[in-house]
Amino acid sequence: MSAAGNGIEVEQLVREYKKGPRAVNGIDLQVAPGEIYGFLGPNGAGKSTTVHVLTTLLPPTSGTARVGGHDVVKEGPKVRSLIGVALQEAALDPLLTGRDHLRLQATLQGVPKERRKVHADELLERVGLADAGDRKVQGYSGGMKRRLDLALALVHLPRILFLDEPTTGLDPQSRTAMWEEVARLRREESVTVFLTTQYLEEADVLADRVGIIDEGKIVAEGTPAALKAEIGRPSVHAIPEHEEDREKIAGFLAQFGEPLATTRDVAVRLRAGLGLTDIVRAVDANGVRIADLELRAPTLDDVFLAKTGRTLEGAQEEAEAEQEERRA
């Protein structure tokens, strides 16, 4: 795999903040041209810092990164002309209109004058902002700002697109629209997409390959299917009808596999060769009543749990608690 085309190559990348933690701690990754790479991890894991380094916004402390065949430190201008970027917080000017933003971005990126207006109209149409294009951004909703941000990232027809948590805070409808647009870009325009997310479903639906990052290190990498296959076995989740049966259920379910740390239900990762019918028989034999019984295929959260010992949601809560502590 080479980054000479539209790919990304990262070797032993480190970024340390002054008086702060090592946000990125020696990561290696490769993204093939035309691939959607999902970079999954909780808040504070190092996702955004990695994007900032790859997009030349932040110099690395050590290590190398090449984007589209160009070194991000030595060939910043070349990298910037190849990439489109939508950062986590849409950097927009509230006093400018959506169309003004597109005009500015097109000028900065060197889009020929005669193409700027037509291109702006096309992009506004494509992201569903044709009617709002002449309104000041201060009146836009969060979803509209995100869509404008995506349009801005596409102004100069970039070969590589960086999307830093593009759907955080969006309603389900806007999120689906964003996914469709990202998938279309890869399918129809062969754009390489580096997508950071904290949503498992997003990585699962969109990404060809996923890198899972935690505390600045990549803890797992592969296609979503391969990562889940690594975990291999499904899990069974039971919700007791009567709360007092919880321990009894946990006791007999333990015969079928290793217990999983969950709060709402009682769950085990099934041993090879066992299925739901074995569990149903055991429930019947033990004479307990179950409100709900579910067999779940492994998810990326299971991968995260297997690699870090925490669920993604738990890691998220930890990160938020840490941030609160720092603020206090």
């Binding site: 070349k78 910037r80 970027v85 950097a91």
Partner: peptide, 14 residues
């Protein structure tokens, strides 16, 4: 302060 400079830094080759 508002983050708009990031857009300029990301978009400007020079």
């Amino acid at each position: 302060e508002g983050g708009f400079a990031k857009r300029l830094l990301l978009a400007a080759p020079h």
